[in-house]
Structure formats: C-alpha cells, structure tokens
Simulated scan of single mutants.
Amino acid sequence: MEKAQIVYDDFAKVEIRIGRVVAVLPFERARHPAYKVEVDFGPFGRKWSSAQITSYKADELVGQLVACVVNMPPRNIAGFSSEILILGARDAAGEVKVLTPTHNIEVGEPVF
C-alpha cells in the first residue's frame, strides 16, 4: 500500500545515519522474535535498538554497517528502551534484511 506523498521538508526531519553493529543480545521478552542490538555511531555515541532481524545469527550482525533513524524518541519495548530504528526490508523469502551500504562508509555519516 502506498502512503500519501510528502514534501521534502517532511523527509528532511528524519535523521538517518550509518552505524556499526557492536553487540547483539537475545531479547526473550519481546513479543515477536528480536534482538537487542547496540550500534556505534562514532562521534554520536552508541545507541540500542530492539530489532526483528532474527533471520541473521547474532555473530553475523556484529561488525556490519547499518542505516538507522536516530532522531526518534526512545520506545519502550517489553521493558527495554529502543533508541533507534535499524532500517530493513523483506527479501523474496519474507525475511527482514538490514539496509547496509555497499561501500565502507564512516560511522556517523548521514544518509541523504
């Protein structure tokens, strides 16, 4: 389903930055299978996310570059404060795959 069109100023409010996954922990209390994921944004610090990206093994995610929305307020998910949104999309098999740059981008760099 397509969403309503927005103007550029609406999109410009969304801050998307590249980060590197540094830790992945199980999240047993989540309603749907998920991990607790720590992402390093370099000069912008480290932030945590609850992410339904369990089609990956935890060790496959560590070290991976990911695109994240970083300017939303924290969201309480089963008692865990999720500070960022790791961006992803479903593949042909229906598994969520993270959006990652094809080149080595410095952590903290904005996506525009």
Rank of each mutant, 00 (worst) to 15 (best):
M1L: 08
E2W: 07
K3F: 10
A4F: 11
A4Y: 10
I6G: 10
I6S: 13
Y8T: 11
D9G: 09
D10P: 04
D10Q: 15
F11E: 08
A12N: 09
A12D: 14
A12H: 08
A12F: 09
K13N: 13
K13P: 03
K13E: 14
K13L: 13
V14N: 07
V14K: 10
V14E: 08
E15P: 01
I16K: 02
I16P: 00
R17D: 02
R17P: 03
R17A: 04
I18M: 03
G19V: 01
R20K: 15
V22K: 14
V22W: 11
A23L: 07
A23H: 04
A23E: 14
V24E: 09
V24H: 11
P26H: 12
F27W: 07
F27N: 09
E28F: 12
E28I: 13
R29F: 10
A30D: 07
A30F: 10
A30T: 08
R31F: 10
R31D: 14
H32N: 13
H32W: 07
A34N: 09
A34S: 15
K36V: 08
K36G: 05
V39E: 00
D40L: 01
D40S: 04
D40T: 01
F41D: 03
F41N: 06
P43E: 05
F44M: 09
F44Y: 15
G45E: 07
R46M: 12
R46K: 15
K47P: 01
W48S: 03
W48A: 03
W48I: 03
W48T: 02
S49F: 07
S50C: 11
A51R: 03
Q52K: 07
Q52A: 07
I53T: 03
I53R: 02
T54P: 01
T54R: 11
S55W: 04
L61A: 03
L61R: 01
L61F: 02
V62C: 03
V62R: 04
G63L: 02
G63D: 02
V66H: 00
V66K: 01
A67W: 00
A67S: 05
C68F: 00
C68A: 09
C68Q: 00
C68V: 00
V69C: 01
V70L: 01
N71L: 05
N71R: 05
N71K: 06
N71C: 05
M72F: 09
M72D: 01
P73W: 07
P74V: 12
P74C: 13
P74R: 09
R75Y: 06
R75N: 04
R75C: 08
N76H: 09
N76I: 13
A78S: 15
G79M: 13
G79E: 13
F80K: 03
S81G: 08
S81V: 05
S81C: 08
S81Y: 10
S82L: 06
E83I: 05
E83N: 04
E83R: 02
I84N: 02
I84R: 03
L85D: 06
L85Y: 03
L85R: 05
L87K: 11
A89E: 12
A93P: 05
G94Y: 14
E95V: 11
K97M: 15
K97F: 11
P101Q: 12
T102C: 14
N104H: 14
E106D: 15
V107N: 01
G108Q: 01
G108Y: 00
V111H: 04
F112M: 05
